[in-house]
Amino acid sequence: MDELLKLSGVVTHIGSYHILHGVDLSVRRGRVTMLLGRNGAGKTTTLRSIMGLWKPRAGSIVFDGTPIGTLDTPDIARLGIAYVPETMGIFSQLTVGENMKLAATTARFNAARLDDVFRFFPILKTKWNDRAGLMSGGQKQMLAVARAIVENRRLMIIDEPTKGLAPAVIDQLIACLLELKARDTTILLVEQNFHMAQSVGDDVAVMDNGRVVHTGTMAALARDTELQTRLLGLSLAAHQ
């Protein structure tokens, strides 16, 4: 199977806390993989371990044939991985434009990509010269996603982009992700919003207590309410 990213037995500690107990996860090329699970299951910690922001103590992380488990964060990012953290990581003192400039790998923007960004999120063009810290939560999330797509990247890792956002903004994000998906972008997406998960997800991995406890397709999980209740504590329908 064509795996772009593969985690095997990843064990991560945060300080003296043992958080990940051997995570196995694969992300297939050109597909959207949903990482689901209850709050505190270890989803964010898994993403941070992939990015090298926490260093795994055991196990392996392989990206397109390259072991990245011991690399530093900048070197991992340079392999072509975009990361949108749960906290969005917006530089609030910088303008929207400056945030975007830092996300571009060269001093010049890729014009086609920038057009895409403005088409998905027109507000960013309007606010280009405003300080990013002055924007609303939804606009900041758009900027966070925009930074990830302003370059052509091989993998996008996005942590709960819809958290706390209004439905209209969520629809905008879904439209953006669907278009990226149509272009065969590989995405690893953590999401609690089931409407979004169902709209964009191909594959699914469910975490509980620091392990991946279920893998399969999104379609199969969406059909199986009993499985949802067992894995997530709630059914998809209840989430909508």
Partner: peptide, 8 residues
């Protein structure tokens, strides 16, 4: 962290 995650 975010600057590093952007590859710098």
């Amino acid at each position: 962290e975010m600057v590093e995650a952007l590859g710098f």
